[in-house]
Amino acid sequence: MNIVRPFLAAALLLGAAPAFAQSGVTPTATPARGAAQLVALLASDETITRLAGRMFDANLSKTELLPAETRTLFARDPALKQHVAGRTRSALTLIVGRELPSLRTQLSALFAEGMTAQEIAETLTFFNTPTGQKMVAQIYRGVGESGALDERQAEKAAMQALMSSLAPEDYGVMLSFGGTSAAQKLQALDPRIRAISRAWGQDVIARNEARLVHTVRQAVAEYPGKKP
């Protein structure tokens, strides 16, 4: 039973740091409200914006991905690269924060439709254990630090980060949850989680790419060290 994959979809689009210290969450009695709690736990503003920042930084360091003109400018003046990165990262953070509610709404509806209130409660309980928190944090960390844009590469990075962090006591907790109907439902929902997340990400890029390109060009034009 692979209980990791259902939580890779959103991370494949963006990563992040551990921001899941919400122990003490009390699951509600309805699937809809419990699903909203689950999505908020797994995709908080802080978590996803930090994930986006990590992936941005990781990909910025891959100079082969940059246009030739940009590579030349950055090589000529490393401080320009940091200036542009700071401006673009700030714009990206605002975009992600503005767009996240729509992703949460879609995922919450999916969990509410596909899982019972009890199964959602069991999932919340698992992800509030130290093992559950570690699992999600390491998945996001692995994806974010790898900067992988390909799903297979991102999944590999996430699994490597997770497996390297597990202690002997974690395996029993994961196996116990993996045998529940909640974990089985999550696995069954995985293709739909990925499809929703992928479509959301493509839509966000399509609607905001021009704005980010403008931000980069403006940052270059307004760079204090730019020669006349």
Results as ranks from 00 to 15, higher is better:
residue 2 N to Y: 00
residue 4 V to D: 07
residue 7 F to M: 04
residue 10 A to L: 05
residue 11 A to N: 02
residue 11 A to Q: 00
residue 16 A to L: 07
residue 18 P to D: 11
residue 18 P to A: 10
residue 19 A to W: 00
residue 20 F to P: 04
residue 22 Q to F: 11
residue 23 S to G: 13
residue 28 T to I: 08
residue 28 T to S: 12
residue 29 A to F: 08
residue 35 A to N: 02
residue 36 A to V: 13
residue 36 A to W: 07
residue 36 A to T: 11
residue 37 Q to G: 04
residue 39 V to S: 06
residue 43 A to T: 03
residue 44 S to K: 14
residue 45 D to P: 14
residue 48 I to Y: 00
residue 48 I to W: 00
residue 48 I to E: 01
residue 48 I to K: 00
residue 51 L to K: 02
residue 52 A to L: 02
residue 53 G to F: 02
residue 54 R to Q: 11
residue 54 R to V: 02
residue 56 F to N: 02
residue 60 L to Y: 04
residue 63 T to D: 13
residue 64 E to K: 13
residue 66 L to T: 06
residue 68 A to G: 07
residue 72 T to K: 15
residue 76 R to A: 06
residue 79 A to Q: 15
residue 86 G to I: 10
residue 86 G to P: 10
residue 89 R to N: 02
residue 90 S to H: 10
residue 95 I to N: 00
residue 95 I to F: 00
residue 98 R to K: 14
residue 98 R to T: 12
residue 98 R to H: 13
residue 100 L to Q: 05
residue 101 P to Q: 06
residue 102 S to F: 06
residue 103 L to K: 00
residue 103 L to P: 01
residue 104 R to Y: 01
residue 105 T to I: 02
residue 105 T to Q: 04
residue 106 Q to F: 01
residue 109 A to P: 07
residue 110 L to S: 04
residue 110 L to W: 03
residue 112 A to N: 01
residue 113 E to S: 12
residue 114 G to Q: 01
residue 117 A to D: 01
residue 118 Q to A: 12
residue 119 E to D: 15
residue 121 A to I: 06
residue 122 E to T: 10
residue 124 L to R: 09
residue 125 T to A: 14
residue 125 T to S: 14
residue 128 N to L: 09
residue 133 Q to Y: 01
residue 134 K to P: 08
residue 134 K to M: 13
residue 138 Q to Y: 02
residue 138 Q to P: 02
residue 140 Y to T: 06
residue 141 R to D: 07
residue 142 G to Q: 07
residue 144 G to C: 05
residue 145 E to L: 15
residue 147 G to D: 08
residue 147 G to I: 09
residue 148 A to N: 07
residue 149 L to N: 15
residue 150 D to G: 12
residue 151 E to H: 10
residue 153 Q to R: 14
residue 154 A to N: 06
residue 158 A to M: 02
residue 159 M to E: 14
residue 164 S to E: 14
residue 165 S to V: 10
residue 167 A to M: 13
residue 181 S to R: 13
residue 181 S to L: 09
residue 183 A to H: 01
residue 184 Q to L: 04
residue 196 I to P: 08
residue 196 I to F: 12
residue 200 W to F: 13
residue 200 W to L: 05
residue 200 W to R: 06
residue 201 G to K: 09
residue 202 Q to L: 14
residue 203 D to R: 11
residue 203 D to C: 03
residue 205 I to H: 06
residue 206 A to Y: 07
residue 206 A to W: 05
residue 209 E to G: 15
residue 209 E to P: 14
residue 210 A to C: 04
residue 211 R to E: 01
residue 211 R to N: 03
residue 215 T to W: 00
residue 218 Q to L: 05
residue 220 V to R: 15
residue 221 A to K: 08
residue 222 E to K: 15
residue 224 P to A: 06
residue 224 P to Y: 05
residue 225 G to L: 09
residue 227 K to C: 15
residue 228 P to D: 14
residue 228 P to R: 15
